[in-house]
């Protein structure tokens, strides 16, 4: 039997905890997220089809409704929806990735991570980076459809979108992770996600333009963190379109606080700060969990 002939095994020594060791843990958690994403074909397909449906079914439908008052020469409504659909895809993928913590807990794998001699925060950082990367990849699949809705394939635009998607996805994953660290089963998690994310999604400018809203609604939209994730994407796409000032005002109003137009840089800064704060709170909650 093989057992009898086993040679003496070389002993290895587990190093004391340190930054390098924690970084290895971050990397391997991230690596696993990506392997798992790539292994799950069905998820990739549904996550790709869903936004395409939004874009071409909903987009075409609403576009037809709006063509009357706007006249026929305005931009295609699907073009308006394009950045919104990218955001939806990124948001959904990121939330799904965050949910993998709950999945890991349910299927036991989380314990394998929890007993390892590493800081629990590195597990969360790995998850957030993994979720951000996966969501960016998923978003790029939608970006690849740009030509179909008359958005030019400019390398600069694609790079800008990729970077902005990554930032937004990191923050959204961190939010999802914060929700997920104490939740014990997937149904509960998706219940919470639906409750929290759906209204935020609708008030973010991803689905309908935020111009000409009643003032109470525009207060809500400017308090909605997702608005700041969606607007940079829209600004990037619209800067590559040729629109009249009136059309820009209608479809790309930007975000203003009182009368100050919030620049994209500030929005991205807010998103990044939010991501770090959410991650921090999640880490504290995770460390306390039994």
């Amino acid at each position: 039997m093989t057992v009898e002939t086993t040679p003496r095994i070389a002993r290895v020594t587990v190093p004391r905890r340190g930054v390098r060791h924690d970084l290895r843990a971050v990397r391997v958690v991230l690596h696993r997220e990506i392997l798992r994403f790539l292994a799950d074909r069905t998820r990739i397909i549904t996550m790709t089809l869903q936004p395409i449906l939004w874009l071409f079914v909903l987009g075409t439908g609403i576009g037809a409704l709006m063509s009357g008052p706007l006249g026929s020469q305005g931009p295609d409504f699907r073009t308006f929806m394009f950045p919104g659909v990218i955001s939806m895809s990124v948001i959904m993928t990121a939330m799904f990735s965050a949910g993998s913590i709950v999945w890991d807990r349910e299927f036991g794998f989380l314990r394998e991570m929890l007993v390892a001699p590493i800081s629990r925060t590195s597990i969360l950082i790995g998850k957030c980076l993994g979720g951000a990367l996966v969501a960016t990849l998923q978003g790029l699949v939608i970006v690849a459809l740009a030509g179909l809705v008359d958005v030019p394939y400019s390398p600069l635009l694609i790079l800008t979108l990729a970077a902005e998607m990554f930032l937004a996805a990191f923050t959204i994953t961190a939010f999802g992770v914060l929700v997920a660290v104490r939740i014990k089963n997937m149904q509960t998690f998706f219940g919470v996600v639906q409750m929290a994310v759906m209204p935020m999604l609708f008030l973010s400018g991803a689905v309908f333009p935020l111009s000409n809203l009643p003032s109470w609604l525009s207060v809500l939209t400017s308090l909605n963190p997702l608005t700041y994730a969606v607007d940079p994407l829209r600004q990037a796409v619209f800067s590559h379109l040729n629109l009249t000032p009136a059309e820009s005002l209608m479809f790309n109003p930007g975000i203003s606080w009182f009368d100050w137009q919030v620049p994209v840089g500030v929005q991205l800064g807010l998103i990044s700060a939010a991501g770090l704060v959410l991650l921090l709170i999640a880490a504290i909650r995770f460390r306390r969990a039994d």
């Binding site: 190093p15 290895r24 391997v28 696993r32 794998f109 314990r111 390892a116």
Partner: peptide, 29 residues
Amino acid sequence: FQDQTVDGYLTAEMNLRFHAEMYGVPRTA
């Protein structure tokens, strides 16, 4: 553990590699 804690989506080797990284097993070993 009493309940299973391997990741079914990964290969056996990847499960072990994951563990080696989490425990900081020297790369050469």
